[in-house]
Design a protein around this nucleic acid. Structure first.
Ligand SMILES: [Zn+2]
Ligand SMILES: [Zn+2]
Ligand SMILES: [Zn+2]
Ligand SMILES: [Zn+2]
Lengths: 166, 166
DNA sequence: GATGTTACGTTATAATATAACAATATAGCA
DNA sequence: TGCTATATTGTTATATTATAACGTAACATC
């Protein structure tokens, strides 16, 4: 039971991450094919780099990796790919980190909550309907129409609490 | 009933904002006196500028206002004041806007949620224990120790829904 | 008043993101 | 096929937000 319901757990050190990557890329390819979207080589590669691990990664980190691969790349190169991936729900932006992470449920454009470990840098994506309903209730009381939610919780994950130096 | 329980409402156009300002500044002065903190002229002025309205304001906006007042100011000037005000719970940073807004319950270092109107730019600060408890429950399930919460909801406030052009 | 500490001034630079326009690739069609 | 409109990427410059580093001034305590 290493990979079942992984999207509701904090990524563990021993999980089969290659499965995460191939699954995410496959889902992205399927989704884009289905939606008539062009997952170009660049966009595919950026998505792959983002999925290298579960740590949100900065735009300029990605940019550096692209240039090290020999590709001609400038800030707009990476930001345009990020925009495409964001617009189509394939990645999330972690506002509190100015960083980007792969989405566990691509294409849904769903609300998500993130728990981010300050020790190992990993982020867990949750989709807790309860949080959404409480926010919706507050919004209703205020007469407020919700457009975008940002729920990001920083702290220390269970794994890092056990290990002093991750 | 214009100003009662204002902290749980979206700031209305007709509310007596001068009361907000004087109350906030008075509370800040009292708090700093009580805690042995130095609310210097600069810090006091920055706090006052932030409380000019209920719209989160950017650091460089504040900086420009200071320089227009004839004060010698550079980015560190304003960021150091912001740091002081943040550390002592007198203001909040709105991560999704890179902007700063006065705190309704200064000194408590409490968790807060923000509802931010994309039309008028105003932000309402809530302190919904329910949201906190749901987050705490998720954290417990994950074995996650919460350090910092960011809950920011963007959308359209009731007032702006009624008026097409605020 | 000497001394240690805190706050502020000043210059430079880091980190993140976008504007504007040119070149290229792709898709749809004559 | 070749032509044309559109989408994508390349390129250069710049905007926006934030911090590093170091010096000076104010303040407090003795
Ligand atoms: Zn994984
Ligand atoms: Zn961790
Ligand atoms: Zn007010
Ligand atoms: Zn509004």
């Amino acid at each position: 039971m290493n990979s079942s319901k992984r999207s509701e757990q904090f990524p563990t050190a021993d999980h089969d991450h290659q499965t995460c990557v191939t699954h995410a890329l496959q889902e992205a390819e399927d989704f884009c094919l289905q939606q008539g979207l062009r997952l170009t080589e660049l966009r595919h590669r950026v998505l792959e780099l983002i999925w290298a691990n579960h740590q949100p990664v900065g735009a300029y980190d990605l940019l550096e990796q692209l240039t090290h691969e020999g590709r001609k790349a400038a800030p707009p190169t990476i930001y345009r790919s990020l925009d495409f991936l964001l617009e189509n729900g394939l990645i999330h932006r972690i506002t509190s980190l100015n960083a980007y992470v792969g989405c566990n449920h691509p294409g849904l454009n769903h609300a998500a909550q993130f728990f981010i470990c300050e020790a190992c840098g990993q982020a867990a994506e949750l989709d807790d309907a309860k949080i959404e309903s409480v926010i919706a209730r507050d919004a209703k009381r205020l007469g407020f129409t919700v457009e975008k939610r940002t729920v990001e919780v920083a702290g220390i994950c269970a794994h890092c609490k056990q290990r002093p130096n991750p």
